[in-house]
Every structure is written in structure tokens, then in C-alpha cells.
Design a protein around this nucleic acid. Structure first.
Lengths: 203, 203
DNA sequence: GTTTGTATTAGACCGGTCGTCTAGAAACGA
DNA sequence: TCGTTTCTAGACGACCGGTCTAATACAAAC
């Protein structure tokens, strides 16, 4: 069957709607604590439709993560392409954005790697692999940016660019968990200080 | 009714048993994904007994975390009191132990701060506060150790001891999440390198 | 040995879980 | 127009969730 444009649009809209709603809810409550019912009721989609678009809750989780990282990486790419800035400045603006998005007051942070990482990695192999793909994408881009930063002279590091990228990502991941636990953004300030130290930027 | 010693022992044993079993299972599957049934069946305690020892699943979670951190902090204290070692060596041995305990092959890591932090912080206020108390205990001890390390000359830092302690804890927390996601201990090697760099230890 | 009172347990309870399934509506091609 | 496929609708089943009440087990007191 060939669908016309309208149908195609509507169909992907429903799917997208379930995905977006699920992302919002699960970013707050986690994976296991949320039932399909809640997502579907909120999205205004009947239960019967769900299994047309997704094979299972597990498969839905995988799609959710892929969908999330796709947008995330696109935004990150844009961030690291900002004109009239040094690579170091671009990187710092990425972490500033992290601070804003992950702060607890606006619906308790939106980063799915932070929220679902530890919970889901031991629970579902497919979701674990989606998480792995996504975080690899982030770290690879950071590594490339750090490499470029050493080239344009705006930062300097000890050891390889990739190792530093991993380390910095770990640092911010952990900081995000601590922000959730403490309900203060102070961990982010600490992480930013350490980040500048590692990249040898002016304090 | 006055209980004799035997009864008292048995009672606390049952409680301890539920706690220990719950810790083992939840360290693997998380909080929401585990039902009381599973814990109680594994522990060999009848379902009806649960509410004699704990007020609710939430209260159980709080007790679980308190119980866990109590042991954790005692072990940490011991670690940081090892004789014939510099403070820097004691700290490094703590993180080496972290690597061992949190590596994925032995029942997927045992650190509850890692496993439950992000999941539970937005779910239950009492559990969040237990997590906050516990992690504060860890960071305070690390800060004190770092302070002592600068005094005995075995390490040196930039900025305050407490800030460095927070940063290092964040780093290792994030590294543990990445270990879960990637099923490699490589993040720990990276974290160790960065740790040595921050504390100005020989590579 | 019976009574008393508490520590502990068994199991019912209701609501929610994921996932299935049947029917029908809607959108297309011929 | 019809026939076919895509999508929607929501009842349904089997099961599991946390919670609570009513009954038991059992030590102490008399």
C-alpha cells in the first residue's frame, strides 16, 4: 500500500507522540516504575495502537533511547559548530547547556543517559546497547572537539583526547546523579571547575 | 512482653535477612523492578511478615540504604586507616577496591549509590535523603583524607580538599554507570588516570 | 493448665501490570 | 464500487503489586 503524505504524517505523528510522551514521563520516573497505560493515556493514544508501532515495552525503550540520542547528537553537533568561537568556548557552552537542562527544577532533568543508565543497563540488553551507541556518539564527538581544541590552541590536555573526553563525560554523568540526590546544582559548579582544570583553561 | 535473648536475636536476624536479600536483589534489578514477593521468597520469609518489620516498601528502601551506607562507611574508615601507608596510597587502594566491587562480572556491581541514585532520587523523598546522608558521609571522609594527604606530602591538589573530594566521587560514580552501559572496566582505568592527575601522583 | 498479651504469619484484597485479541473504522488501489 | 491493508478501539486474561485484617504461635503470669 502506498500512503499519501497526509497519512504518512499522521502515522509518524502518533508514533512520535508516544515516543515524546514516554520520554517526558520516563525521564521523571524511570523505566520500570512507569506503565504503558500512563504513557498512552497521557498521549491520548489507545492501548491497541501501541502494539502496532512497537513490539513490546522493551522494544519501545530501545526506540525511545535511539530517538533521544538522535536529537541529542544533532544538537551537540550544532553546539560544536558555533561560529566565531574557539573550540574551548564551544565545549564550555555545551556543559553550560548541560547544567541548564539537567537542573532539578524543570521536571527533574531530562538526560536519559543519567536517568536510565544504571537502571536499565542490567535489565534489558537491547536498551543497554542503545545506551552504549548513544554515549559512544557523545564521547566520540567530544574527543574530536578536544582534538580540534588542541589544534586551535584554545585548550591543552594531558594524555589522549579520547581518554579526556571519556573522563569528562563520566564526571558530568556523576555530577548529574549527585544533583538529583542533593537537589543542588553545586555538583555542576564543581564539575565545571574540574573541567577547566583538565582542559587547562583560565579558572 | 519481655523478650529473652534468643527471641531478640531471631527477630533482628529476620529483619537483617530481609535487608541483606533485598540489597542483593535490588543492586541487580533496581528498586521499582523488584517486588516484595521476590525478596521475601528468596529470603524465605512469609509475605505477611514484611509489614511487621517495615512500614512500607518506601520505608524498607530507606532502611536498606541506611543499612548499606553504615557498612560502607565502616569499611571506608578502615581503608583510610591502613598502617604503613601514605594517605595517597590509602586513597588509591579505596578506588582499587571500588573497581573490584563494581565490576560487572560479579552480579553486576553492588554499589547502591550507583544503582539506585538516579532512579530513586525523584521517586521517594525519604530514600533521596538517605542517599544524601550516605554520599555526604563518603565525600566528607574523602575530603578529610585528601586534607591529610596534603599534610603528609603524599599528594597535592588545586583548590579545596572538599571540592576535590566531590569531583573525584562524581567521576567514579559516572565511571560506574559507564561500566554498566559498556560492560567494560575501561572507564575505571580512565577514572584512575584522571584521579592520579588531579592528585598529582606519579602516572 | 489456663489465661493473657504480644510477635508473627497466612492469605484475601483490589488495583494495576503487560500483552493479546477481536472488531471495526479509515484510507488506499483498482 | 469493492477489496485490502493500515490503524484504532478497548475489553480481556493471567498475573503480580503493595497493603491490611484476622488468625495463629508462643512466652510469661497466675
Amino acid at each position: 500500500m502506498l500512503m499519501n503524505t497526509e497519512t504518512t504524517l499522521k502515522t509518524t505523528d502518533v508514533r512520535e507522540n508516544i515516543l515524546a510522551t514516554g520520554q517526558r514521563i520516563m525521564a521523571g520516573k524511570g523505566f520500570s516504575a512507569v506503565g504503558l497505560n500512563e504513557i498512552l493515556a497521557t498521549a491520548g493514544v489507545p492501548k491497541g495502537s501501541f502494539y502496532h508501532y512497537f513490539g513490546s515495552k522493551d522494544a519501545f525503550g530501545e526506540a525511545l533511547l535511539d530517538h533521544y540520542f538522535e536529537h541529542y547528537l544533532a544538537e551537540l553537533d550544532e553546539m560544536l559548530r558555533q561560529p566565531n568561537k574557539t573550540m574551548a568556548e564551544r565545549l564550555i557552552s555545551y556543559w553550560q547547556k548541560w547544567e541548564e537542562n539537567q537542573s532539578f527544577f524543570d521536571c527533574q532533568g531530562k538526560c536519559l543517559a543519567v536517568k536510565l543508565g544504571a537502571e536499565v543497563a542490567d535489565l534489558s540488553e537491547t536498551m543497554r546497547l542503545a545506551l552504549k551507541r548513544g554515549t559512544k556518539g557523545i564521547i566520540d564527538r567530544l574527543a574530536q572537539a578536544i582534538e580540534a581544541g588542541t589544534a586551535d590552541g584554545s585548550l591543552s590536555i594531558k594524555g589522549s583526547a579520547h581518554d579526556n573526553a571519556e573522563s569528562l563525560y563520566q564526571l558530568w554523568l556523576g555530577a548529574s546523579v549527585m544533583v538529583k540526590i542533593g537537589r543542588t546544582t553545586h555538583p555542576f559548579e564543581i564539575a565545571m571547575k574540574t573541567t577547566r582544570q583538565i582542559l587547562h583553561l583560565s579558572a
